[in-house]
Design a protein around this nucleic acid. Structure first.
Lengths: 235, 235
DNA sequence: ACCTGAACACCGTTCAAGT
DNA sequence: ACCTGAACACCGTTCAAGT
């Protein structure tokens, strides 16, 4: 590790290397460990050296988002709109699972980055090519919201925390199962079904991939129905 | 203002006062201005005095979330499940619009707070009373995701930044309209329709309330269809 | 002209000293 | 026993001094 740092120190810094190291740092240690000082240390460089390649931390994060969004597959060719949209979103979801910090990073920013705009623009293009009116395509993009980028939008987000360990969190989301079932009986009932195991609690045992696709298909099927009915807003 | 601080200084601190002052501080200045030191100053108190009422900043934020979630209306009585769910979510949305910092605060936490669990439990109860199977209710909660709490889930989030000014942001999300239309023609086309005005850009002119209800109803209608069909997952 | 160490203005939180 | 000032270990970023 010290040797590797020694080697890396010889190769000159570049914006590319800075962004890549930052993504790796965030992947491994989460947003908390992403500081200009930590990043500089990983690169064997004094903190101020970073400021020749990124204007400030905000711009660093924007660059990191660009790198990650670039990992999303291009749209599949020769497919109907529904299949193309579905596959692209599932690709985005796989990317987000590799970089669990990125969804919060995107949501924390005030403005979307160019790569996000390009991704969304491409998705609108897929809808338009599929025969969607501008009007319907517009509302559909709003309806999909951040799910277009593969966001789970879960309130019990097991995926986000599981980043390091990979396993489910050792601690239940609230108190012990017995108390939990008393206070939140309807959630407890749901959790039991999800896990096929009476001793489980909410947040464990849910099949995230199934739930994501369930929600995605619920939206896509509804959208398909509107499309076939030539739906328009009354504007 | 100095006089008011003087008066407030006499009334003893309480967890209630700390949380309420923190919510007000975040409402006015956003998450950035919410520091233990700023909060203590607003309360006319030394920073360390706060630690007798909240264990640390994380627990402070949890308490702030509890306060805000408590502002959501209880479920309307004597209503079918669809109306009850719809009205409750629209109430949650109004609350989130009053406290623009709270959605990010909720998403940033690893575990849901008790008030959030109680809210979700109540919503599951509404579905179960409406005749939903445990299985379908479970998947529906995942499908709705954070939208159950009124989250917009927009990538162009005009509402979140508009907190202070109330007006739309003076700066377009990316470059000037002309360049924008060149790089993102499909987004530009959508934006023009949304604004009835060729000079506009994405993010301006969208009717947030309409879009939220469009997406909400798209989901609710799809859910109603599954419910009527007695849908079950194949488990 | 370039690079960088020290410094500035902040954080959340600990802890020991003072009352 | 209670309260709190100073201190600690961090931040992102500025800026002037050194090469």
């Amino acid at each position: 590790m010290a040797e590797q740092n020694e080697v890396l120190r010889r190769t000159p810094l570049s914006r590319e290397r800075v962004l890549r190291a930052a993504v790796t740092l965030a992947d491994e240690g989460g947003t908390d460990s992403l500081s200009m000082r930590n990043l500089a240390q990983d690169l064997g460089v004094v903190p101020m050296a970073l400021y020749k390649h990124v204007a400030n931390k905000d711009e660093l994060v924007a660059g990191m988002i660009e790198v990650v969004i670039g990992e999303i597959d291009p749209p599949v060719a020769d497919a109907d709109w529904k299949h193309a949209v579905r596959e692209r979103i599932l690709s985005a979801r796989r990317v987000l699972q590799r970089h669990p910090w990125v969804s919060l990073a995107i949501e924390s920013r005030k403005t979307p980055t160019p790569a996000i705009l390009a991704y969304l623009d491409s998705m609108v293009g897929t809808l338009r090519n599929g025969g969607f009116s501008v009007d319907l395509a517009h509302h559909v993009m709003h309806a999909m919201g951040s799910r277009t980028l593969g966001f789970s939008q879960e309130l019990f987000d097991t995926a986000r925390n599981a980043g390091r360990t990979g396993a489910t969190s050792p601690e239940p989301p609230a108190a012990r199962p017995a108390q939990f079932a008393d206070r939140f009986p309807n959630l407890a009932e749901i959790a039991v079904v999800a896990s096929h195991d009476g001793s489980s609690v909410v947040g464990r045992g849910c099949d995230d991939q199934f739930e994501f696709e369930f929600a995605l298909d619920l939206l896509l099927d509804g959208i398909e129905r509107l499309h076939q009915q030539r739906w328009t807003s009354s504007r």
